[in-house]
Amino acid sequence: MRIPAALRGDFITYVAGYLLALVLTGAAFAVVDFHLAVPATGFALVLGLGFLQIIVHMRCFLHISLQRSARSDLMLVLFSALIIALMVGGTLVILFNLRMRMM
């Protein structure tokens, strides 16, 4: 049976995304389970691997890409990421500053 190229392409994207995600997840769990680093570094590694996996999800499952047709979605995601960084970053800085000054 001849599988059309578009179908093959789509299927490979999803499979690749799934496998990459599994590897990144496994690596993150391994860092914790096998105590591969001190907690601070370990957490940084886990966050980094998580961030990479989020990009894999966006690219392979949610079809965000640099193509023109997905441009408005990409802009939306980037702008939202900026707002999230401001809100979450600001909150953490402010509240940790308050905690420190309360001690």
């Binding site: 707002i83 401001l86 809100m87 600001g90 800085v93 402010i94 500053n97 308050l98 000054r101 309360m102």
Partner: peptide
């Protein structure tokens, strides 16, 4: 407008830098 919200609670104990 997303970068200024703390000015509503300047007096709540943050450091002067913030």
């Amino acid at each position: 407008s997303f970068t200024v919200w703390l000015h509503h609670f300047f007096t709540m104990g943050q450091s002067a830098d913030i």
